[in-house]
Simulated scan of single mutants.
Amino acid sequence: MPDRAWRKWLAAHSPVKTVDVRQTGPDSLVVSLRGPLDEKSAERAGRALAHLLDAGPHQAHIDLTRAGDLGPSLTGAVFVPLAVAARARAVAVTVHHAAPRTRASLRALGLDRVLAHSDDTP
């Protein structure tokens, strides 16, 4: 998985201030989201996260430590494209340190069936 390609794509297409990517192994990556997110940056983050799965990782860890509280619309904008891409590519996605409101939004949207949750640091 070419780490350079992810960074190049993110620089051109994503909310650079919102998304940090690091490769943690040959088949794993960690993406940290930084908030606050608005509707536009949430949609761009969702597209960026889905695109990152094109590189073929087997595991993706989404760290929300610095993302703040995401309501249902922002949670959907970020995680629906990611969940669709993860399911299509058989990538295991774990969401780390989601705020209570974000976790409730993931459950309400049914995304807790596709995305795992952990309070451990990725």
Rank of each mutant, 00 (worst) to 15 (best):
R22W: 01
S105Q: 06
P122H: 03
T24N: 06
P36M: 12
A12D: 11
A108L: 15
V84T: 13
L115F: 13
V114A: 07
G25D: 14
G71V: 00
P122C: 04
G71F: 01
R34V: 12
K40S: 10
R89L: 02
K40P: 01
L29F: 03
R101M: 09
A50K: 05
D20N: 06
D119H: 06
R44I: 01
K17W: 04
G56T: 05
W9L: 14
K8L: 13
L70M: 14
I62D: 07
V16A: 14
L64H: 06
K8A: 14
W9S: 15
A83Q: 08
R107H: 01
D54E: 15
S105C: 06
M1C: 07
R34Q: 11
A55N: 06
D20K: 05
P100A: 14
L70W: 08
V95D: 01
H117R: 05
F79S: 04
L82Y: 02
G35Q: 08
P36G: 10
T121C: 02
A60C: 13
D38S: 08
A11S: 13
D63P: 04
V114L: 10
A88L: 10
L115S: 13
V114H: 07
R7G: 06
A45G: 09
R66M: 08
L49E: 10
G68M: 04
P72K: 11
L115P: 12
A108Q: 10
R66K: 13
A86L: 11
A90Q: 12
L10Y: 10
T121F: 06
T102P: 05
K17Y: 04
L52H: 00
R7I: 04
T18Q: 14
G110L: 07
R4N: 09
R7A: 09
K17Q: 15
H51K: 11
A60G: 08
L49K: 09
A88Q: 12
Q59E: 11
R22I: 07
A45D: 07
H96N: 14
P36D: 12
V19A: 00
